[in-house]
Amino acid sequence: MSWLQPDWVIDTRRAEFRWRRLRRAPRIAMDIHQTDGSFWPAFEPHHYLKLPRMIAANYYVGFVDGAPVAHLAVSTRPGLVEGRACRLVVMPEWQGAGLGLRFLNEVCALWRRGVNRYDKPMPMLFHTSHPGLAAALRRDPLWAQVSAILYAESKERSMKTLAAARARKGLKPAGTGYGGHFRAVQGFRYVE
């Protein structure tokens, strides 16, 4: 079928895979708005962790043709020493279109230049467990990898920390903790 022009070809006889990008992907314009966090419930089902919305965070939503397609929350570390971007979610129907990294880069660039509610330039951190996103961040010259925890955290250590915090408040230990499961977390710093 000479009229067929696929983007990729698998030759089963030679056991080869080959990309054939014949057409450029269309450029997708995205408008980024700072919001109040009210969009998080629409994005939360698509995030890999089930967490409530962040308190005291700055929320950003990317829109394509008026539809919300990307979400990011940014908080600061104590002392306003750096920002931490998290809860990056791209709606499933938009994943793979290249919007997520562009969106993350733009929001981090704003914070790096001091376009934030503190009017203060801040270094930006971002952590992810997504292997594809981690690989993309490693390839992007705007990012440098600063950490990688590729094994499970100690649930026992977490339980002790939580028990000590509750004891300081005069409360009984809750008997729960976090960790003990495998979640490879890789950390990156925006270095523009």
Rank of each mutant, 00 (worst) to 15 (best):
V191Y: 00
P121E: 03
D11W: 08
H130F: 05
K172C: 07
M30Y: 05
R102M: 07
P92I: 04
N105K: 06
A73W: 06
E16V: 10
R14I: 02
S158E: 04
R27N: 10
G132F: 11
W111L: 04
Y178C: 06
A167I: 05
A174N: 07
D140M: 09
K172R: 12
M159A: 05
R166A: 15
G79D: 04
G96V: 04
Q34D: 07
A164G: 06
L22T: 02
R21A: 07
L142E: 07
S147L: 13
T176H: 08
Q34L: 07
R139P: 09
E82M: 09
Q5P: 05
S147K: 10
I32G: 06
S147Y: 12
R23D: 02
L51E: 15
Y59R: 01
A135Q: 13
R87A: 05
D11N: 14
L49H: 07
D65T: 02
V61F: 08
F63H: 05
F188H: 03
P26G: 06
A42S: 03
L88Q: 00
F39I: 00
L99Y: 05
Y60K: 02
A73F: 09
G98R: 00
G187C: 09
M54R: 08
S147C: 12
I149Y: 12
G79Q: 03
A135D: 14
A85Q: 06
A152R: 08
Q95M: 13
D11E: 10
G100E: 01
N58A: 15
H130V: 06
E44D: 10
Y60F: 15
R166H: 09
A152H: 01
G37N: 02
L4S: 08
F182T: 07
A73N: 06
L150W: 06
L150S: 07
A73C: 11
E106A: 13
I10C: 09
Y190M: 04
A144P: 00
R139G: 14
A97L: 14
Y178W: 13
E16Y: 12
P131R: 06
N116H: 07
H33E: 15
Y151G: 04
E153N: 11
W111F: 15
A165N: 03
A57D: 13
Y178F: 14
V74W: 03
P141V: 06
L137S: 07
P92G: 06
L72I: 08
R189I: 11
L104F: 03
G114V: 05
L142A: 13
R168S: 13
